[in-house]
Design a protein around this nucleic acid. Sequence first.
RNA 1: GGCCCCGUCGUCUAGCGGCCUAGGACGCUGGCCUCUCAAGCCAGUAGCGCCGGUUCGAAUCCGGUCGGGGCUACCA
Length: 482
Amino acid sequence: MTVRVRFAPSPTGYLHVGGARTALYNWLFARSKGGTFLLRSDDTDTERSTPRYAADILDGLRWLELDWDEGIEVGGPHAPYRQSQRLERYRQVAFELVAAGWAYWSLADPDALDRWRKEAREQGRAPAYDGSLEPPPEEVERRLAAGERATVRFRVPRPGRTEFTDVVRGDMSFEHTQVEDFVVLRSNGTPTYHLASTVDDVDFGITHVIRGEDLLSSTPKHLLIARAMGARPPIYAHLSLLMGPDGKKLSKRHGDTAVAAFRAAGYLPEALVNYLALLGWSPGDEETIVSRDEMIRRFDLADVSKNPAIFDLDKLQWMNGVYIRAMSADEFVDRILPWVVEDLGREPTGDEQRILREIAPHVQERTKLLAEAAGQVRFLLVEEVDYDERSWSKVMKGDAPEALDGAISALSALEDWTVEAIESALRGMLERQGLSARKGLQPIRVAVSGSTVSPPLFESLAALGRRRTLDRLRRARDRLTG
RNA sequence: GGCCCCGUCGUCUAGCGGCCUAGGACGCUGGCCUCUCAAGCCAGUAGCGCCGGUUCGAAUCCGGUCGGGGCUACCA
């Protein structure tokens, strides 16, 4: 049997990291089994679905390089892959279900239903509607004939129970007294999630449904529908949910959880993928940095953790740094360029790009987020620096004038403007002035970079060039005198 | 309230009855390195929720309890 899995987001919100993880696990499973990964859009909620979110989801998946073999925008034998374009099919199935006695037209009064559920709850019973509020058949027929709108509800067999084996959770059993006669077709003729999703899974030949644990207790409904359709239901695997630092389900109040937000902040897709993969799955050994190929080779649903996982930004950030350091300097420059352009307000010149490449290795190892790098290299690309006032007042005192003067004269006399020459000139200066490197170099750093924190000084000066270095040293010296 | 899921360092996890004096990673602390900040290296910190049971032996099996989470819609 060839594995067929799907990621089926509802475009009622942007792609968030939880959804991305679900997509990733589906993708990994498909790739590790040589199966098909399919993308469809569960957009039956026309009220809340928007094209903007739909586009964001596709962007996010592409950015993460979770390519799909079949589905939205790539097509396939079961097209279309948007539920909003398959409405007739769901209606048809709903009618067939009614005709076969698996479902019925429901005219239960909504208010009465509310009261019924409330009472059930108060009496400690399951608030699962069992059809007892329906009018007699003759009345239903009459009102339907008169054009009254009704929902279609699935007739859950009671007594009874649904049992299944979840690949990550093991044997499950749900008593049907706990499962209500759920709506499959709304009174406006559109299908509910349960119907549309299950029909698609059946029609598209989905073999494994890998999704969030929030759908675990809906699984009996899906099994019931699939079996009523005469199909062999897919195998289910429910992933634990992602939590915020407070242990609650990850949501907006934990900050921006959108994949697009991570992208904008300068996270690398490969780092996010690596982190997400290990959030609920372990290759079994002590590896933390796992390549995509390695993941595919070793991924197994049986190794997926049942525990809910708290999203740890610190660890993601660390991992991002690991991936950044692993890049070549050229690649690093290419990847920070968009942020540099934004920061500068213009495209760097060829000369400036050369400077960037020169300093890249040194910036790279201090960068955790690509977005930060722009700020670290800015002083190399602008004509004049703005001093960070805290840095200034911290170091521009004591021996600072001597250090600056010494640097100006030592560097003016320099023949070769190279890292080595600059270093030996400045170290010679330190010795003459009797200054420690720690104390003597900081004023120079602030004068040139504007801050007490910068890439290594000698390399920075070499990249900056003689003219700008000396200009800045003199300007700082003047400012110091007042 | 009902049903369901889950419970190993603060966090992600390894562990499938003796290999556990519970391993790794992030974080945190200290040290080394050092021109700042990082990175790197070294060391340290900290955990089997609790109570019973099974067993020669339990983090591992069973029961209970407590705690956390999910679902309980004509949302998905």
